[in-house]
Amino acid sequence: MGGTASKLPKDLLSEYQELTFLTKQEILLAHKRFSELQGRENGPYSSRVSMEKVLTLPELKSNPFRKRICHVFSTSDLRDGSLTFEDFLDLLSAFSDSATLEIKSHYAFRIFDFDDDGTLDARDLEKLVNCLTGETDDTRLTVEEMRQLISNILEESDIDKDGTVNLSEFQHVISRSPDFVSSFKIVL
């Protein structure tokens, strides 16, 4: 592919348009960026781009969840977070302007679910807090504060009191925060 790859076949393009929330321009731009990433790949051509390469994109480079995002959207059997172009489109589609609240919250949930077990338990929440707060001493939470915070969160959002936040409880929390749709957004 390489340089000539900026041409997408027309039927493929319309299929992408049909199955994702992206517009034609967005798909073409995504394709351009993706083939740039592929171009830098050494060795024989592969349809996958490794996670390290994907993370060189400025839109993802500094994101605290960058590895999680790659893992969630990767369809690789090796679970190495590498992305095909379709995976990449899925990623952009979920983070696009026109994606529904439901799809956004679904992927947010999977990104925050660090151990991929289908619920946010205390360990996931702790990792989440560590991802989101600074590393300096005055912003890092103490053990006691962390415990308090997690119990607050569970008290607020764990409606069925099973000690974890599942997808529908997570969506319930999000439905009370209208800012989520506008902030869960990555644009190329």
Binding site: P58, E59, K61, S62, N63, P64, F65, F95, A108, F112, L125, L128, V129, L132, L149, N152, I153, E156, S157, F170, V173, I174, R176, S177, D179, F180, S183, F184, K185, I186, V187
Partner: peptide, 17 residues
């Protein structure tokens, strides 16, 4: 509503690069 949950779960701005 103490704000802890939404602040943690929904307030991160993915658009900031």
């Amino acid at each position: 509503v103490s704000g802890g949950a939404w602040r943690l779960l929904c307030s991160w701005d993915f658009g900031v690069v």
